[in-house]
Design a protein around this nucleic acid. Structure first.
Lengths: 188, 188
DNA sequence: AAACGGCGGAACGCAACCGTAACGTCCTGG
DNA sequence: CCAGGACGTTACGGTTGCGTTCCGCCGTTT
């Protein structure tokens, strides 16, 4: 019944508004203004700000990134780092993600949604990545998948989302080498 | 002339308010209420919200953490990781830091202040840490201090501020080992 | 004793926002 | 051609916050 073009416009407006002012200052009015619709159109679809944002964000985040399976650990690693650094350099994502992370620290509902949207998936990626590599003999048995994920995502996230400096190709190579060596050598 | 006990009360209130609602929803009125002072007392000290927050935060952050100098790379590393994980587990800090990080993405003034407060200092730590280790022969020459910092802070920050799971002693040991191996083996 | 100045408190005009209720419009089916 | 329903838009009262101004209080300085 609800006109889908309007729903799309609202979803779009929420993402952009979220990026510009953050969750804390997100207002329904501003969303409506930007989407070119009335506030009622929004309230007919969601009952409040939190519900609206959570539904929209988890929908976007839920479009699962495919699990890595390039045939070699180095390839998988490179692929993951490419995808993550792409994602974290995306203008909108790079503002929304840290913002919601911060918000999650004080809103359990947001925290839970983000956990579902991000952590669950990343855990799966970590386990698959490490599992495959162990099977192939590229990593020692007993390698901790969680540690692997932290070692891969941590530095990237730190650099891209916190220091906000662009990593060049050389840096990425160094990081890849470091992570590889770290995982190969620390579990034995 | 300004009563210092009142200034302290305001500073304290700002930090707590910042942790509870974030920068986006921080209101002068709430700060005054919490501090038990009149708004006038605040406006007499700072001319607006941004200036107030920046001054207070950078003051707190500016209390420089001492540079590591325990005599061995392993010791320095452990010390740094202890300090950082302590800091990031602090109730107030763990909420304020991600919040301001996110805010910095859209407010250049905040970004600049945080850069000064955090990045400059961390760079110094990284250079000292790596420099000492290289001199001692614990790390190969040409080790990238920036990469080292990213490898150390990234995973810790990711785990503590993003995934929000407490790292146990075992995890920290693994991480230390991984970082050590990574830096030792990847620059050659 | 008198002047000074920071203090809390109250109120101001202004702006933004919330959530709702009344309104007008468009589409559909009879 | 019209009735009915679902829609988006407009208008509204109420709240919150900003930054400012004025007031009376009180401790300090001169």
């Amino acid at each position: 019944m609800l006109r889908s073009d309007i729903t799309v416009a609202i979803r779009d407006a929420v993402m952009h508004e979220l990026a510009e002012v953050g969750y804390g200052r997100l207002s329904i009015e501003a969303v409506a203004r930007r989407a070119g619709v009335g506030k009622t159109a929004i309230y007919r679809r969601w009952s409040n700000k939190l519900e609206m944002v959570l539904e929209i964000v988890s929908d976007v985040a839920g479009r699962t990134v495919p699990l890595p399976d390039t045939g070699s650990f180095a390839g998988d690693l490179q692929l993951i780092m490419m995808i993550v650094s792409r994602a974290l350099q995306h203008r909108i994502a790079s503002q929304i993600i840290p913002d919601l992370m911060a918000e999650a620290a004080r809103n359990p509902q947001i925290a839970e949604t983000l956990q579902k949207a991000l952590r669950t998936h990343q855990q799966a990626v970590g386990e698959k990545l490490v599992g495959q590599a162990v099977t192939r003999g590229e990593l020692p048995e007993g390698t901790d998948p969680d540690l692997a994920v932290d070692l891969i995502l941590g530095p990237l996230y730190w650099r891209l989302a916190v220091s906000r400096t662009k990593p060049d190709a050389e840096y990425l190579e160094k990081l890849m080498a470091a992570v590889t060596v770290a995982l190969r050598g620390s579990a034995g």
